[in-house]
Amino acid sequence: MEWVETTAKTVEQAQEAALDRLGVAADEAEFEILEEPKPGLFGRTRGEARVRARVKPAQVRPKQERRRRGSKDKSKGGAEGASTDAPSDQQPASDTPSDEGSAPEKDESTVSASSNGSGRGGQRRKDRSGNNKQEKAMSNDERDPSPVSPQEVGDAAVTFMDGLATAFGATATSELQVDGTELDVQLNGEELGLLVGPGGRTLNAIQDLVRVSAQRRLGDHETRLRVDVAGYRARRNEALGRFASDVAASVRESGSARALEPMPSADRKVIHDALNEEDGVSSRSEGDDPNRRIVVVPA
């Protein structure tokens, strides 16, 4: 189970070097391409190919089962892994809404409920194709110790964003959408490039600060708050989706797993969702933030 990691000018050379290190033939090893020697679309560029390899474990890969279910119900997944854990998390939480012990798990159960409502275990209903937003909103409302309403949190976020745009000298206004506990704040206007920054870094920092200003300052733990400026995230998500399709195609073709650049959880979710729609591949995440990364494996 020991992984070795090698770098070389090309992927092939790196793989050969890895085989030398392992002392096995190519068909006895499995590879993950960590970096290809060309500029990556998202993240830093490196001149060298980086792969890791290990001697193939004896048993068959147990992932098949999971993948098939994911493609069958066509839901927007990503939380697929979570949904297998969900029944144990979720069931007690909804039976005893005010159970404080379940509070730390809230984020996770919210996510899994959003995948397809499969957390409801036995009582899976006919609405699998349909709208699970309601269900999610309900499960949040059931335990609502938050001292402020989602609307108030959203209003604070809008006040913050409008003031920020003014301080930047930009002509812009923000709009708030409230959907249960989901809050979306959109800033639109002129000259907003500075507020997005390279790779969206300034926007991510702004979103952080909006959350401190609106959620934390008001003591809110219930809402999920997202901020976009000038439609940047929407465009980036489209680009991430196309990128995911390209990666899926290359993994299908090569039959080798491929690790992507580390990226934030929101971006990972977009990629997982996109890959879930692709045949012949599945994905998982490895490592810890901020170096957590997706690994795309042939299914």
Partner: peptide
């Protein structure tokens, strides 16, 4: 120091103006 880092990022973006 996460919030401080975010404050620095946004303020430096403003300073570039």
């Amino acid at each position: 120091g996460r919030t401080a880092a975010s404050i620095r990022t946004v303020t430096r973006a403003a300073a570039s103006k």
